[in-house]
Design a protein around this nucleic acid. Sequence first.
DNA 1: ACCTGAACACCGTTCAAGT
DNA 2: ACCTGAACACCGTTCAAGT
Lengths: 209, 209
Amino acid sequence: MAKPANRSRDAYHVGNLAPQLLAAARTLLEEVGPTKLSLRAVSERVGVSATAAYHHFQNRNELISHLAAQGFAELAAALQRACSNGSGLDRVRAGSLAYLHFARSNPALYQLMFSPEFTDEALIPALQRERLAAFGELKRMVAETLGQALDSSDVRKASVAAWSYIHGLTSLVIHGLLPGAADNSDEHFVERTLEGFAALAISCTTQIK
Amino acid sequence: MAKPANRSRDAYHVGNLAPQLLAAARTLLEEVGPTKLSLRAVSERVGVSATAAYHHFQNRNELISHLAAQGFAELAAALQRACSNGSGLDRVRAGSLAYLHFARSNPALYQLMFSPEFTDEALIPALQRERLAAFGELKRMVAETLGQALDSSDVRKASVAAWSYIHGLTSLVIHGLLPGAADNSDEHFVERTLEGFAALAISCTTQIK
DNA sequence: ACCTGAACACCGTTCAAGT
DNA sequence: ACCTGAACACCGTTCAAGT
């Protein structure tokens, strides 16, 4: 009996409650959606009083901030795994696919990551850090594609452009604004939009002449 | 005294409560943010009981759905006004600017328009309709830019690409994920991202050869 | 140090009752 | 037809009290 007080239904709970709360919240999040995740329900699922969470997090916002930070960390990892050795376009394709696939596999988490609740004031350090890490991964991919330095002007501009594109596509797909969002594959959306950009680019450059 | 019961503080209220509720909700929305808009606060601001709204809307979701529909209608109108006669690139610029400017002028409304609360199941007809109208306006602009028919394959693909880009950029700016989001102008963001796309496009096409 | 229970101020929503 | 008031089930959060 190395661990005596293991998962008892008694009054007092053992330690390491914070990770248990986060894990329960992560599960509940995808069950009830990003707007209906309640601290009370999370506590109840863990089997702890409604107010226990306040000894590990300042408030609900801090708990879901950690969830969002976790999401950005996983997104960064997914992007890192997606680094391909192909041509410039293949790299863009691979990164976009990894991004969209992560979000469609964790739709409520992805929506939470961009929740208006984090928009103003001070973010917790973890969220700020993982956000930057994820964007850094994206910048790295863009730098490799362009064959330029990470801090070059082109890489900075192209990174924001690339993030705008893939976040926008992902957001539209997840929110169901695109017809047949449920039926179509990640590849379908990425391929078609990349073709769309090509058509726009050609039209703009030829008209300039 | 053509209108006798005008804005009295008596128990019973005059008619046309629905538009009054919507107007109050629209104001409150930008004051408290998209996640904290409560039906009770809206009712109180209008000076009516907490349950009065239920005689004009099925529930909170239906009221904010009308708000979102209003947002899409105004976005469509803004895009329509932005139609420029310049080159292809100028048209893209003008449309993007109008889009971003509308969202930054109504940040809480824009976030509400893409709220996870509308993601699943059946939308109210008004929201569905105005969403399509706004996207239709965007399609029209893209069709003019490409010089192709509205229902052509290229226009459909390029429209989703363009919407992804501008919605993504807008979302990132509004949520404050881009450094210095408060300081920079709409023009700055649009110009820089368009340059970013150009850099990516050049890199991809030259590498293909 | 960690957790609970009662309490408070807020929600959305239902329903019987009032005019 | 339109509105109110009481009521219910849920929230987040504070705080004194328990181990």
